[in-house]
Design a protein around this nucleic acid. Structure first.
Lengths: 352, 352
DNA sequence: AGGATTCGATCAATCGATTTAGCAGGCTCA
DNA sequence: TGAGCCTGCTAAATCGATTGATCGAATCCT
């Protein structure tokens, strides 16, 4: 039951191991007769030979192996899509992926990087579960790509979601439906504020381009970004006097949108008839199974995973600028947006 | 910038590579003076030496590497916990994990197994995203463990959730709250019916032990196991005449329970006052963010991932019986269960 | 004093592949 | 006919570690 080695093939074909290697790897420029080639290939197939990747890795100094190191990515529902993208790209290029989860523990991270470097991975992908700025960890090899995070000091290719464009799409969807009083249920403040900051910026931009003066009461930060926070923010929005009360809410993410649903329902408000809602993330189990299904902006995790892997493998050129590549976030239209209630539309028009 | 090799350490310490290896690996029985040991260790630290795992793997025939092969696990929200368990166990034992996702494609699976075997993984974990029976794939090495699935023909250790005990706990929770008319919103039929079959069996057992004769109308299978199916089933339950209408529903999973919530709400029913609901899976983003939070049975993914990895690494003995190890599923009590409405309790008592 | 031990460290083989230099034999051509 | 050139294949070095065999010097024992 021992593994078949190249020498077994050589013996079976009556040639040297050199010949077997030359033939099986189809090395151009090697002068082996067609007859011998056939014999070697038959022998290899007969004994069921597959090369030992470890031995080959040692000799070639290339392991066809990738390290994917992440904070808590693998334990979040997004992670799957990111990993799937990375996996698919890796498989297409004949690579295998080492997955390591550090749980954001710096010591675990350090050990993991070292272990992966010792494994001679051809490249490394440093992934985050949410779009943020990270310090480049020590020991990260030259061939590293940042996934869903931007290295504070640059120097490595990186890919992040285009939160600015995505945020614009979300708010424009509401403006296009006729809303004028649009709130933003924002997440907690983090530093530096990447996703949140960009989505807020997008919110302000689109309001400005629609000629709407934002009411400061329309922007509330949660203590976190859970449904509870979304609910709390929405309750405060709905407490606003009639002519300032939003007819639509852009939520930092789908979970907060789920909270907005709860708050609306508790007031007897129908979505979207009485209140339109747009989320962000397209978190399947939240957005898709809400009632009514939530219109949201998808985070392109699969595409980012793929991009990072292809760049890591040298199959795709990163942008020359040293700026992160911005992956588009498509809007997913479901049933949580409609035109504002007539009364609100009137009152808004009155105000304008 | 080239990697530091053992020979660099040897040169720096003025000894042979053998000595370095002996010292750094602390091989018992090797006779190296304490003075030389110190010199070697200093030299190693000074030049920043870490052994090349590939070279060591080739020589030792042990790579401290594990293959984790799964169908669609990495793209489901459970996956994270399973991976986290596997990761943690692997890290504790100094191992790295190759993660491969086959998307249930047999060809991809075959290639993946071969690639992992070629990488000389020390052991393999074959994981499924849901508890089911699988054929043992060709080429799987001796040292393989099945995770969240049972091999049809045995021969390998396996770990699955104890769906029978979990199902009993769920239904007993409802019985203990005083319910007598308890429905089971089941998933679609699959063959062989593992999770669904066991949970249904548990349902029947607990009803029997409570002296309740199950009404056949209380068991409905969905076309799948989504919220839509849960909603459809619940609507049919609620259409039952008053004295046969369930006061509590055990749902195959949390998504179906989310559907039950929607159906109840559309009838103006309060949960849990008018209808108690228990789910299964403890899918965080569903169960935890429903309103009211859902009482459910947790699937022990983390623990199973850990168990499988520890067995794969030989750090834990699998059961001698060749039967899958049954991992307990704890009940997570939240707010979706209360005693039945007074009227229903009366009518039920009348029937009894 | 001289053979046997012990001590401390090294030599060289090994893991399983890839790759370069080179060897033997046949052919060409002046 | 013999130098030069192909053709077809192989020997041996190499990647970077581990490890059983071995070796010189010091020590022990009678």
């Amino acid at each position: 039951m021992a593994r078949v080695r190249i020498s077994d093939v050589a013996a079976a074909a009556g040639v040297s191991t050199s010949t077997v290697s030359l033939v099986l790897n189809d090395r151009p420029g090697s002068r082996i007769s067609e007859e011998t080639r056939a014999r070697v290939r038959e022998a290899a197939a007969a004994v069921g030979y597959t090369p030992n990747s470890i031995a080959r890795g040692l000799r070639m100094q290339r392991t066809r192996t990738l390290g994917l190191i992440s904070d808590v990515i693998a334990t979040t529902p997004f992670a799957g899509r990111m990993l799937a993208g990375a996996q698919d790209a890796a498989r297409e290029h004949g690579h295998l992926i080492f997955l390591v989860n550090t749980d954001a523990d710096p010591e675990v991270e350090r050990d993991a990087i070292r272990a992966l470097v010792d494994q001679q991975v051809d490249a490394m992908i440093y992934a985050s579960m949410w779009h943020r700025v990270v310090e480049t960890p020590d020991g990260l090899p030259e061939r590293s790509v940042f996934l869903d995070c931007r290295p504070a000091s640059g120097g490595h290719p990186a890919v992040v979601p285009d939160d600015l464009a995505g945020g614009r799409a979300a708010v424009r969807e509401l403006v296009a439906a006729g809303h004028r009083r649009i709130a933003f249920a924002d997440a907690e403040k983090v530093n530096p504020p990447v996703a949140s900051g960009l989505r807020y910026q997008a919110y302000l931009e689109v309001l400005a381009e629609a000629g709407i003066t934002p009411d400061p009461a329309w922007h509330i930060r949660g203590v976190d970004s859970t449904a509870a926070s979304g609910r709390a923010a929405t309750e405060r929005f709905l407490d606003l006097p009639g002519d300032r009360r939003p007819t639509a809410i852009f939520c930092f993410n789908d979970r907060m949108a789920a909270g907005a649903y709860v708050a609306a329902r508790h007031r007897g408000l129908e979505i979207p008839a009485d209140l339109s809602v747009v989320g962000y993330d397209d978190q399947q189990l939240v957005a898709g199974e809400l009632d009514p299904p939530l219109t949201t902006i998808a985070l392109p995790h699969y595409e980012m995973g793929r991009w990072a892997t292809e760049v890591a493998l040298g199959a795709r050129e990163p942008p020359a600028s040293d700026q992160p590549y911005l992956m588009p976030c498509p809007i997913i239209r479901r049933d949580s947006v409609s035109s504002p209630p007539a009364a609100a539309a009137n009152s808004s028009r009155r105000r304008a």
